[in-house]
């Protein structure tokens, strides 16, 4: 079976769900080999084994995470050369896509981004124009580099006992040209990760400066992640990494609840492939209502707390 490289997405050893999804996908297409970059591997190895990594390449040199993107692409490029895998999969996050792009140039391959599924022969399904068009595409030059959107393929446990191999790469000066001097982690709290969550509750301008506690209360009743529109992040009501939309995160949960959000095109670009969509907005003409499965025209300060209460009652 052909080997397929999966770049592990993690923050200090905390493995992102998209990685498990990619391992599942890779094992459907061939044999999944995880590529670990950075520290914290020991705490994560069981997780990778549980989700079917047949092999793990561990690159733990500190240099690999001290510079923007290029070292990760360099390590992957070397593995492509040494191991001749059938394809490389990365998560289609902002950084994942950049790694894919640099890797593609390094190895002279085509790259496909924002892929939602991959079939035999590495034919990739894309959801484009905000979900309006489904396109299939393939790479016809080099080893396919494919960036897969989080929450597109369900992760399935498939326990394996992967062999481990330590790997390193000699970085060029160009790979070390953009030095990360500080990583600032903004608290995410106990809620699920925005791009991974099955349910997302987002608040917008209508929520106001003091209203985000209502959004958090509703989210917690559903076990959901909290998101925000740009109006809310720009106003400083919620940190920017929770922004959903074209320049924020693209989410594709089972359920998306938009509260006090008008549904501007840039917001929709980040959420309109959600399976079920609900909105609360006092303006019946708000464009968000064009997308909903269920909508309530009304004051969010009445409707949202009542909803939270009803959900808690039903538990």
């Amino acid at each position: 079976m052909a080997e397929i490289l999966v770049l592990v997405d993690h923050v200090d050893g905390d493995v992102k769900k998209v990685t498990l999804e990619l391992l599942t996908l890779a094992n459907r297409l061939g044999e999944a080999s995880a590529v670990w970059v950075g520290g914290g591997y020991d705490g994560a190895k069981d997780k990778l084994a549980e989700y079917g990594a047949q092999k793990v390449y561990v690159g733990s040199d500190e240099e690999l995470t001290s510079y923007v993107v290029a070292p990760k692409a360099a390590l992957l490029a070397q593995l492509v050369q040494d191991k001749a895998p059938a394809a490389v999969l990365v998560g289609a996050t902002a950084e994942g896509k950049e790694i894919a792009g640099r890797l593609a140039v390094k190895i002279g391959s085509g790259v496909l981004t924002d892929v939602v599924d991959v079939a035999d022969g590495f034919v990739a399904e894309h959801s484009i124009f905000g979900g309006g068009v489904i396109a299939h595409a393939k790479v016809n030059t080099g080893t396919p580099v494919i960036a897969v959107r989080p929450n597109s393929v369900p992760a399935e446990a498939a326990p394996a006992s992967p062999a481990e191999e330590q790997v390193s790469v000699a970085l060029s000066d160009a790979d070390k040209a953009a030095k990360i001097v500080e990583k600032v982690v903004e608290e995410k709290g106990e809620r699920p990760d925005l791009t991974e969550a099955a349910i997302v509750v987002s608040g917008g301008r209508g929520v106001g400066k003091d209203g985000f506690s209502i959004i958090e209360g509703l989210a917690d009743s559903l076990g959901a992640a909290v998101g925000a529109s740009r109006a809310a992040t720009d106003a400083g009501w919620y940190p920017h990494q929770f922004q959903v939309g074209q320049t924020g995160k693209t989410v594709s949960p089972q359920l998306y609840v938009a509260v006090g959000i008008s549904g501007a095109i840039q917001h929709r670009a980040g959420m309109q492939t959600s399976k079920t969509i609900i909105a609360i907005n006092k303006d019946p003409e708000a464009p968000i209502f064009e997308l909903v499965d269920f909508g309530v025209v009304g004051d969010l300060f009445q409707v949202a707390p009542q909803l939270t209460e009803e959900i808690i009652k039903r538990k």
């Binding site: 209502f289 499965d293 309530v296 025209v297 009445q302 707390p305 009542q306």
Partner: peptide, 14 residues
């Protein structure tokens, strides 16, 4: 989708 106007029971309807 289905869109309703809140008549005091919007939250319960959702």
């Amino acid at each position: 989708g289905q869109i309703v106007t809140d008549e005091g029971d919007g939250g319960a309807k959702i």
